[in-house]
Amino acid sequence: MIQIQIQKSLLMAEGKLNLDVDFRLEMGSFCTLYGKSGAGKTTILKILAGLVQPDAGFIQVNDQVWLDTAKNINLAPQKRNIGFVFQDYALFPNMTVRENLVYAAQSKEDLSAIDDLLQRASLLSLADRKPLTLSGGQQQRVALVRALVRKPPILLLDEPLSALDLEMRQLLQDQIYQLHKSFGTTTLLVSHQLSEIYRLSDQIISLDKGKVIAQGPPAEIFGKERLSSKIQLVGEVLAIKKSDVIYILDVLIGNNIIKTVATEDEVTNLQPGDTVTVFTKAFNPIIKKR
């Protein structure tokens, strides 16, 4: 069981933010911190890793107290034994892929497991390359396996897939999940991509303006509004064209442009660039695998 309780006032791009959270995580679970940017997600990970100091707080992992500001206990990041995957990957440019992993190793067993890790992440053929010569997806995989070399019980992922394209993202989601399962880590992921969260996590902590607004399994958190027999899509208006008495709207939803019909009432106050919700009721969608 991981118990986290922290308070910190932060200076964000949008102004001052009072981070005040209190939650528990089961060991071995895959939990996602979900929320808009500026909600304090990354800061929570960094506080858990010991890289940022909260104004007040208490962190306990199993029976070990990592942080207790009331008792002046504060374990250094080096002693917390966590794996951290940074948003910019933070690979050491002066070392090859293999050297990055060797640097992370702490024992002989860690060293002998490196080939296996490289193999699992299909990085063996790239082991002697410098990180900056690799693609984003490859760098991400190096960062992930480097964080796992010491077999940490806790793995923290700070938006690890945000810089990658859709296809690569899906591939890596599978890889992250498999590694999470086979290493039995407690994984805490920061993300704001719904598909990622839905596929991977068994717990979601939804944050808004530094506060936890909901915690639970994905279906429970998103079930209330996002999953229903209604289909509801959010998109960006690209063009509005008048055709006789009606209007044709081009709306960009995901990577698709959808043409839809609108009345004059609906298009008043609308202009290209606006974000709109497109929804339809009582429909029976046909689903086909591509």
């Binding site: 010991g50 794996g83 951290f84 910019d88 480097r146």
Partner: peptide, 26 residues
């Protein structure tokens, strides 16, 4: 980037080792 230093700390390396093996070579 400060994440290089932070990554080294989370890998259990001391400040001195981080300086000698990560910061200075870069």
């Amino acid at each position: 980037p400060s994440s290089l230093k932070e990554a080294s700390y989370t890998l259990g390396k001391s400040k001195l080792e981080t300086l000698l093996k990560v910061i200075l070579p870069n």
